[in-house]
Amino acid sequence: MNERDAKSAKIDDRLLVTKAKELFDQSVDGLDAETRSRLNRGRHEALAQLRPGVRYGQWLQWNQRTLPAAGVAAAAVVAVLIWTGRPPVDDLTPPATASDFEILLAEDSFEMLQELEFYSWIDFEAELVDELDTNGNVG
């Protein structure tokens, strides 16, 4: 490319950039009212972050992020408690075992969960009968 061509290309580049900027500015000026309104609302929401009293949005966002995690954590704690069998609900309720946890994880565990107390009672009764039988045998 000779010097004249290079100069011409530079002028072309300048023209292109100028026209691109003009077109872009026109498209910015031509934004519709709804879009401008949404930008305006977004700006005010952003500026609300500066005010110490207005933390609702942040709180909500924090909760949106942390609630699912908190749910998973709570489920994990319940699982660990069931797994380790502590703490028992009361003196009459026998500690759950690993097999209980497996049952709870089974597909049809929902009905089981609803009637958990009933099954615990049956379990307790069965153990009581076994104990009486054992004592009877001994005695």
Binding site: S27, L31, R43, L50
Partner: peptide
Amino acid sequence: REQELNRFLADVERRALR
């Protein structure tokens, strides 16, 4: 500061959107 930020964002937001 809030007013300055408001002016800045109002100036820049439409170009940023495009």
